[in-house]
């Protein structure tokens, strides 16, 4: 559904690239997450794919159409939920939705139903300018679903949402996924990536470091670890030790035999741990 080959982009046209030779593929019905810190190049890739930034170098094809050949009809097939919640502030949610729906050449979904889906049923007639950030985020998501897109682009879809709303939105995304929608998602939240994506691409300094399913990444790069809390000289100490490491395994055994152990938790490396391991920096 999405094919990208050796994509490069430079904002300054000075030989430095903010997107530096990226290649990837998203299959029909698949959810691919771009995981990386702010400024890594995630949103730039997305902007190129949705035509907001011009194609400079490389190739990109979305739903059989080369990015540089986009025409207005193409936009009947995609939906974009922006991180910056853009809407006409003086219009109500419903007025905004009805206006946006009128731009499409294909049948659109009922705006009220979509607003209800994202929990904005009580704010249908409220001016968008009076919305909170979370409400705006949900509104742009609902708007992006109006044309029932075949390819759905989500830019930081859960940014700034409270846990309850986040969960609701995640459920909406999962529902869409189940209907076969191809989803391209950018996030710096490892939990979002892990829960929603079939595959994630770690992106850093404009390059894809690795791309695979969360499970495979963990199997390949993550180690099983144990967190042990024990008392020593009246003080509580904590150690995080990898089970796959012989030295750490010996240390676990030593602590269990010689120390007053308070708690033992086994766990696996998170995507963030793996990201740090591979890139040397965190996701924030």
């Amino acid at each position: 559904m999405i094919n990208v080959k050796d994509l490069k982009f430079s904002y300054r046209h000075d030989g430095t690239y903010q997107v530096d030779g990226i290649s990837f593929e998203v299959k029909e019905g698949e959810t691919l997450g771009f995981l990386g810190p702010n400024g890594a190049g995630k949103s730039t890739v997305q902007k190129i794919l949705i035509g907001l930034l011009p194609m400079q170098e490389g190739e990109a094809i979305v739903d059989g159409v080369a990015v540089k050949d986009y025409n207005s009809k193409f936009f009947n097939k995609i939906g974009v939920s922006f991180e910056f919640p853009n809407a006409y502030k003086k219009l109500s949610a419903l007025e905004n939705m009805e206006y946006y729906a009128s731009l499409f050449d294909v049948p659109t979904q009922d705006p009220r139903m979509l607003l209800k889906l994202v929990g904005l049923e009580d704010a249908v007639d409220k001016k968008v300018g009076d919305f909170s950030k979370g409400m705006l985020q949900r509104f742009v998501m609902a708007r992006s679903m109006l044309n029932k897109p075949e390819v759905w682009f989500l830019d930081e879809p859960l940014s700034g949402l409270d846990p309850q709303t986040s969960q609701n939105i995640k459920n909406v995304i999962k529902q869409e996924k189940e209907t076969g929608t191809t989803i391209f998602l950018t996030t710096h939240d490892m939990h979002v990536a892990e829960e929603l994506c079939d595959r994630v691409a770690f992106i850093e300094s404009g390059k894809i470091i690795v791309i695979d399913s969360p499970r495979n990444l963990k199997l390949k790069y993550g180690e099983k670890v144990v967190n042990i809390e024990y008392k020593e000289s009246g003080k509580t100490k904590t150690e995080k030790l990898a089970l796959g490491n012989e030295k750490d395994a010996d240390r676990v055994s030593e602590i269990l035999k010689t120390k007053e152990v308070e708690t033992v938790h086994s766990g696996e490396a998170t995507l963030e741990d793996i990201f740090i391991e591979l890139t040397g920096r965190g996701l924030k």
Binding site: L52, N86, A87, K89
Partner: peptide
Amino acid sequence: DHKMHTAYMVSPGG
């Protein structure tokens, strides 16, 4: 300012 043009640009509107 409201970045509304970005939403319009990804619609079929000319």
